Computed example of a mutant assay.
Amino acid sequence: MPLSSPPARPTSRRVLVTGAASGLGLALARGLAERGDRVLATDIPLTRPDAVPDTVDYLSLDVRSDDDWAGTHGHVMDTWGGLDLLINNAGIATGGRIDVAAMDEWHRIVDVNLLGVVRGCRTFTPLFKEQENGHIVNVASLAGLVHAPGMASYNAVKAAVVAISETLDHELAPHGITVSVVCPAFFRTNLGASFAGNDGAMEAAGRRMLDRSRRSAEDVAAIVIKGIDARRDVILTDPEGRIAWRLKRFARPVYSRTMRRAGARLSRDAHSTATS
Rank of each mutant, 00 (worst) to 15 (best):
R208C: 06
A102K: 15
A217I: 09
I136W: 01
L16R: 05
Y255W: 11
I177R: 00
I164H: 00
S141E: 08
E132F: 03
R208W: 01
W80N: 11
R242N: 04
R35A: 08
P174I: 00
I225F: 09
V52W: 06
L266N: 13
V181Q: 01
V139W: 11
P6H: 06
V139A: 08
L26G: 09
A70R: 14
W106F: 14
A201I: 04
V112D: 06
R249V: 01
S141K: 08
M259Y: 05
G82K: 04
T189K: 05
D211W: 03
L61S: 07
V146N: 06
L28W: 10
P7V: 14
P239A: 15
S213W: 11
V234E: 09
G241M: 03
A264P: 07
A20W: 06
G192W: 10
N138Y: 05
F195G: 04
D199K: 09
T72Q: 02
R260T: 08
P7F: 13
A201G: 13
R246N: 13
Y154K: 11
R265S: 14
A102I: 04
T42L: 05
G74Q: 13
T94C: 13
E34P: 01
R214I: 06
R261S: 12
A274P: 04
L266C: 04
V39Y: 12
I235Y: 09
T47G: 06
W245T: 09
T123P: 03
V146F: 15
S216H: 10
L24D: 08
